[in-house]
Amino acid sequence: MTPPRSFAAFSIVFAVVYAIAYVIAVEQNYALFTYHPAISEFGAGVQQPKEGPAMYWYGWLATAGIAAFLAGVLAALLPESVTRRLWPGWTWVVALAVMVAFCYILRIYFLR
């Protein structure tokens, strides 16, 4: 399968925006939806726990996925003269930076 040339731009921007949007979604709790596992119920947006814990992880994934997909599509529409300047290394640099950021955000678990 041969993807279009613009897929390179899509994949770079998708990786970068996804990682950044995900960490922001987690930190600010921008979950697209909430899952209540104890009662197997989904709810739109961020909801308070009902009869057990509320799970936002799926909602964070959806928020980041949509933001990254839209940004990636926009990047793919840009002229090649612009997208050629995108450094592919941002894909792993931003992913690793976000992973380090999560270690910092969750440090309380390891310092108790």
Partner: peptide, 25 residues
Amino acid sequence: KQTGAFELKEHFAAVGLGILPAYWH
């Protein structure tokens, strides 16, 4: 520490998902 390690697991897995298109490309 184990709870925190699992929290990192869920976030690392999510971050990995985002780089799959670039990895494939």
